[in-house]
């Protein structure tokens, strides 16, 4: 029983940073732009959040700084792909390199510095509920924030004008033009907002989850986020479930090891990726057919040679 609770609770804790990244990627892809730089935005968010948290002592300011750092990097992606017509894949990876370089340049002096990040805060009453309370309500504030962010993103995408414009940009951009909106502005806004969310995810990693900064600490979570969005068929609600699933796969290894089971951590680490590949292979055609039409074009477009 305690193993299950540990895994579930660890899944929520560890899945939250991925979830922020994937929510950001959802917004971006709904507008028709895939952003492999999500990994980079999370890195920027992790370092930005860490620096500000260390310097000001406020984790909330840290989270905000992380978000802004993530948004800044994504704004560059938006500029390159929306205005300059660069390949979305190449631009995303380039920005990952930029983030790797910037964070190691500016983060070197912060490696090993102590930080007073978000600490666990048990929600009164709710946290006493057996299992559910432990899993959901004995967490850090950024986890609670994500409980609000998920429905907010859903509402934003499906109930507001901004969301309608984002979805139209991703489904049939010329319809935006016909109605006098700028496709470029809508896409740039969505991509930047996506980076903002990914930045929070990165900050969650450095000032709530690990309470440390080290080079390349995101280590693939941003890429998982990109894959997760497809896995979740571009729905914020499903992104939440998927992120927890990934978090649990990550938590399972340490939970088992803590109990003296001899498990191979790397086999467990591979589970989320293999799982995603398997799900994509099984859902493949169905998923692809329900993807935003403009995004489909990005995937189908041959790289220029």
């Amino acid at each position: 029983m305690s193993l299950i609770v540990d895994v579930l609770s660890g899944g929520v804790r560890g899945g939250t940073s991925i979830m922020y990244g994937a929510l950001g990627e959802t917004v971006s892809e709904r507008a028709g732009v895939i952003n492999l730089g999500t990994e980079g935005s999370m890195l920027m968010g992790a370092l930005g959040g860490y620096i500000v948290c260390v310097e000001t002592g406020s984790p909330w300011l840290g989270a905000l700084a992380g978000a802004l750092a993530g948004a800044a990097l994504s704004l560059l992606h938006a500029y390159l792909v929306v205005w300059r017509g660069a390949s979305q894949f190449a631009s995303g990876l380039t920005l990952l390199f930029l983030a790797l370089g910037l964070t190691s340049l500016f983060g070197a002096t912060y490696v090993g510095k102590p930080v007073d990040g978000f600490s666990r805060w048990d929600v009164p009453l709710l946290s006493d509920i057996p299992v559910i309370g432990t899993v959901l309500f004995q967490q850090d504030p950024l986890v609670y924030l994500s409980f609000a962010v998920v429905p907010f993103i859903w509402w934003l995408l499906f109930k507001t004008r901004a969301g309608l414009l984002i979805r139209t940009a991703g489904e049939r951009s010329e319809s935006l033009t016909v109605h006098g909106y700028s496709v470029k502005a809508v896409r740039a806004g969505a991509v930047t907002a996506g980076g903002f969310l990914a930045g929070i995810g990165g900050a969650h990693l450095s000032i709530a989850y690990a309470n440390a900064w080290f080079e390349n600490m995101v280590s693939g979570r941003g890429f998982i986020a990109v894959a997760l969005v497809i896995f979740a068929v571009w729905s914020p609600i499903r992104v939440m479930g998927g992120a927890y699933l990934f978090g649990m796969a990550l938590a399972l290894g340490s939970a088992l090891q803590a109990r003296g089971y001899n498990v191979n951590q790397f086999a467990l680490d591979a589970i989320p990726f293999v799982l995603t590949l398997a799900v994509l292979a099984l859902l493949g055609k169905k998923t692809v057919s329900s993807s935003p039409a403009e995004l489909k074009k990005v995937f189908e477009n041959a790289p220029p040679t």
């Binding site: 979805r167 489904e171 049939r172």
Partner: peptide, 26 residues
């Protein structure tokens, strides 16, 4: 237009909302 500029993935109401100001929410 001959090729109709509607967005197939959206509902009729959402398509019409694109053309009509309704404020922040739809």
């Amino acid at each position: 237009f001959q090729d109709l500029r509607l967005v197939p993935a959206l509902t009729v109401a959402e398509n019409i909302a694109l053309a009509i100001p309704t404020g922040v929410t739809l």
